[in-house]
């Protein structure tokens, strides 16, 4: 799928990216000069307190919010200057997005919600169906294929949103708190799937406060007041003696 001009390019690059919201007169800076580079196949977790600009950042990367100044590049192509419809094409073909509040189509079944992006991108119905069956199966939702989104719990809807975002095997998966509504068991399914697609080479940039999700990432970027205050690898894997955990502390 990679054309010659894209080879060697970062999956995502931002240059001095700024977002200032103008609400009721006072300008509120949300993102203040972010330089970020994400290599193909890299998994980057964006962390930081609420109001630090992390959701705004990932929304801008997906074209869901416009930048105030600076540049956004996706696979060597400048995209911050694209219009709405060009962004729609880009999202259909290259970027999968998992929203905090799902945005599923209510009058379509779960199966159709997941298959739709693949069909819109020109995949054959058979491939779209196979991919959907695989993703829903991995997320423990195989028996919900014929349900309407409204019949599902919040956690189930969130997993459907993840399946939909991955349906197209997008070049980049963007997600905003993809485990925000999940209990432990459902989070485990999401963690397993994220780990698996990442091993298959999926580039992932996601906002999360959940340490279990961030721990899977290759790199953690921390924002504070709209600026990157930390950017680096998670500490190397620790080796415990004999593989046993030290989850509990023993005292004799």
């Amino acid at each position: 799928m990679t054309t010659a001009s894209e080879a060697g390019q970062p999956a995502i690059r931002t240059v001095n990216l700024v977002k200032i919201y103008q609400t009721g007169g006072l300008p509120v800076p949300a993102v203040r000069g972010v330089d970020l580079r994400v290599e193909p196949g890299e998994f980057v977790a964006v962390m930081g307190p609420s109001g630090s600009g992390k959701s705004t950042l990932v929304h801008m990367l997906g074209g869901l919010d416009t930048r105030t100044s600076g540049e956004i590049w996706v696979e060597g192509r400048r995209v911050d200057t694209l219009n709405e419809s060009a962004w729609a094409v880009l999202r259909r073909q290259q970027i999968g997005f998992v929203f905090q509040f799902f945005n599923l189509v209510d009058n379509m079944t779960v199966a159709d919600n997941v298959e739709l992006p693949a069909l819109l991108a020109g995949t054959t119905p058979r491939h779209a169906r196979e991919r959907r069956e695989y993703l829903l199966g991995e997320l423990g939702l195989a028996d919900k294929a014929d349900s309407a989104p409204a019949q599902l719990s919040g956690g189930e809807q969130q997993r459907v949103a993840l399946a939909r975002a991955l349906a197209n095997q997008p070049r980049v998966l963007l997600a905003d708190e993809p485990t925000g509504n999940l209990d432990s068991r459902n989070t485990r399914d999401v963690l397993r799937l994220l780990g698996e697609v990442h091993r298959q080479g999926q580039t992932i940039v996601l906002v999360t406060h959940d340490g279990r999700v961030a721990g899977l990432a290759d790199r953690v970027v921390t924002l504070l007041d709209g600026q990157i205050v930390d950017d680096g690898a998670v500490a190397p894997r620790r080796r415990t003696r004999g593989g046993a955990g030290d989850v509990v502390e023993l005292r004799s």
Binding site: L191, G211, V220, D230, V234, P236, V247
Partner: peptide, 20 residues
């Protein structure tokens, strides 16, 4: 703080592995 966060995340990753 930044170093400690990365350390906690490494422990968390080990716990996820252990659970699996």
């Amino acid at each position: 703080i930044n170093r400690q966060r990365r350390h906690y995340l490494a422990i968390m990753r080990d716990l996820v592995d252990l659970a699996q």
